[in-house]
Nucleic acid binder design. Structure first.
Length: 591
RNA sequence: GGUCCCGUAGUUCAAUGGAUAGAACGAAAGUUUCCUAAACUUUAGAUACAAGUUCGAUUCUUGUCGGGACUACCA
């Protein structure tokens, strides 16, 4: 129970005692009191006027007087119009501090008990990861950690799109232009290596189309008839037919890509419990569709193609199997959804996928519901907005894609430069320095991508580097390092207090933030929104820095005050480290 | 055309229908004999437009203008 819940319950009782009326906890609106008024929390009484048949300020006065007289937690109140500003006894926060400062897991809770799968990253194997993928990856990783933190059992999975025309394009280009060279021989990271041939394919394709048009063919036909495109399609057919040479090449090139991805994932600190491959799942939807057809849940057109009718949901009819019996994209997703469910029997299955696929995901869920599959209701699309450049979307054809590996290297480079300029790292070994640069560079990058509400698209300007000051990862990390420094210098072991010194306004503000932290994490889990965690740790870090300015910890006036301030330091450190950990960000002891 | 999303300081982002719309960067000015100045303090600066619902609207409704996504027997 946190103070807001306690206060709500107390007000509920007060309403009953004063007016003999019942008000639900949901009807009570309590906010933090704005800084310019005295008080800690504010009850808005306008909404109670109908129920109580009184004016808002009257209600506020009466409730305030009652609370002051009957609730020992309330030490003062003030009424301004329909706002009842309540001051909470400092002892509540002092007790809270004493009871939690030593708990390094403070913030972890046991409020939810579902089994949840989170699918994220989900790359194609024809090109390396770019900046947009990073948003997906960090989101998935953080959301999984946030869901787990409140008590859920979480399974993190990656679904790799390893088959289809896109990889055939890379394969054809490699056959035509590579002379058998491998990434090792070329000294290029595997995913970039294969991506380069995907680009080569498109360059050559454009050239061939232009040539055909110059020879008098119309554009539409030229795009279909370009020899390199025909070759890629032929290769896809061979792949599907199980042609051995094609499969061998496919496996080889994919293994190069995976080697590259592994390096990136490792650097980013990203892990999965299970990896699905579309090459292994893409056929599995077919039998499910056929079963549903037999059960009259779907219908067939004259050409034998299978459809589902979603017009009653305001959507169209959707194709699920072609006339020749082959699968479409949606069929694969149906199969994969079933496979995931059969593997783990989850209550929820979260898909971290960009908002361009909102419609697709809506249709997938509807189809599963129509087919009465047990996994249907648990399907949740965690839709996030695209990362855009100031000029608009990133386009590989225009060469405006920001590569993920380059971005990471750049951020680590900036971390190195900043650290060297500040010159605070005497005594670091070269290994520790490298680790620090990684910690700070990745911290800046992850925080930058996670601090924005996932639903909203975000704009990244490559001209301006990601900041290390203000509302950023390094700022929070720095605060953690400062706290750690103080704690290292502290000589007392036992922080138990003999007497409890009074706390200042700043200290109370800080303790209020810390006290709310578990509830904030619960909200972040409910909304699957890491930006809430970014905000929470930033607020704590900021308020802590303000606290440090005029509260000497190690040179406090007396031993009890010092110990109490050390308790504050410890709890702040725990919360910052815990919150950053949920975001996938490391908290350095020194920087 | 249809469906959906988005317009908040110069810029990037906040704000369960609540008080005088918060931060950060950038701009201007200041703080260090003292626990890390990657910090702190101060100043200037915004809800695209117009109606409506409400005691109260950045938030809900409608319209206008502007931006984006989706709308394949592609994946």
């Amino acid at each position: 129970m946190n103070i807001v819940s306690i206060l709500k319950a107390s007000i509920q009782k007060a309403v009953e005692a004063l007016y003999d009326k019942k008000v639900s906890l949901e009807e009570l609106s309590i906010n933090e009191t704005k800084a310019e008024f005295s008080g800690d929390y504010t009850l808005v009484t306008f909404s109670l006027t109908k129920l109580l048949q009184k004016k808002p300020d009257e209600i506020a006065h009466e409730l305030g007087s009652y609370l002051l007289a009957n609730d020992p937690l309330v030490t003062d109140f003030e009424v301004i119009k329909g706002f009842l500003n309540v001051t909470i006894h400092s002892d509540y926060f002092i007790e809270f501090l004493a009871g939690n400062y030593s708990n390094s897991q403070y913030g972890k809770s046991d409020w939810a008990h579902e089994k949840i799968m989170v699918e994220y990253s989900s790359p194609n194997t024809n090109k390396p990861l770019h900046f947009g993928h990073l948003r997906n990856i960090f989101l998935g990783h953080a959301v999984a950690a946030i869901l787990k933190n409140v008590g859920n059992e979480v399974v993190k999975v990656n679904l790799i799109n390893d088959r289809g025309i896109h990889i055939c394009k890379s394969m054809i280009a490699w056959q035509l232009f590579a002379n058998g060279i491998t990434p090792e021989q070329a000294h290029v990271k595997g995913d970039h290596f294969v991506g380069d041939y995907y680009v080569k394919f498109n360059d050559e394709y454009k050239l061939q189309v232009a040539t055909l048009i110059a020879d008098g063919m119309n554009e539409e036909l030229a795009k279909k008839e370009a020899p390199i495109m025909l070759a890629a399609q032929d290769m896809l057919r061979k792949w599907e037919a199980g042609d051995e040479a094609t499969l061998t090449l496919w496996k080889t090139m994919n293994s190069w890509v995976y080697a590259g991805f592994d390096v990136s994932y490792k650097k980013l600190g990203i892990t999965f419990e299970h990896i699905y491959y579309e090459s292994q799942t893409y056929l599995s939807g077919k039998s499910i569709v056929e079963k549903a057809l037999a059960n009259q849940l779907l219908f067939q057109k004259e050409d034998q193609s299978v459809w589902i009718d979603l017009t009653d949901a305001g959507l169209d009819q959707k194709l699920l199997l072609r006339g020749d019996g082959t699968s479409v994209y949606m069929t694969q997703d149906i199969g994969t959804a079933m496979l995931k469910y059969n593997d783990y029997h989850t209550d929820k299955s979260v898909y971290v996928i960009g908002d361009e696929q909102n419609y697709h995901m809506q249709v997938l869920k509807l189809i599963m519901q129509k087919m009465k599959e047990p996994c249907a209701d648990g399907i949740q699309h965690l839709s996030y907005g695209m990362v855009e450049l100031p000029t608009g979307k990133m386009k590989s054809r225009e060469g405006t894609v920001v590569d993920a590996d380059d971005m990471v290297d750049e951020m680590v480079g900036i971390a190195k430069k900043n650290t060297e300029e500040l010159g605070k790292v005497d005594g670091f070994s070269s290994e520790e320095l490298l680790q620090l640069y990684n910690t700070l560079g990745l911290g800046a990058l992850k925080f930058y991508l996670l601090r924005v509400d996932p639903k909203k698209k975000m704009i990244f300007n490559p001209e301006e580097s990601i900041d290390f000051h203000g509302f950023t990862g390094p700022f929070v990390q720095y605060s953690h390092a400062r706290i750690s420094s103080i704690l290292r210098k502290a000589t007392v072991e036992d922080l138990t207090l003999d007497v409890k010194p009074a706390i200042s306004r700043t200290e109370k503000n800080l303790l209020k933030l810390l006290e709310q932290y578990p509830a904030i994490l619960f909200q972040a889990a409910k909304e699957m929104n890491p930006s809430i965690v970014c905000n929470a740790v930033y607020q704590v870090a900021k308020e802590f820095n303000a606290f440090l300015v005029d509260h000497s910890v190690l040179k406090a006036a007396d031993a009890n005050t010092m110990k109490q301030r050390l308790q504050i330091c410890l709890l702040c450190k725990h919360v910052i480290a815990h919150g950053l950990h949920l975001l996938g960000i490391a908290a350095p002891e020194r920087m």
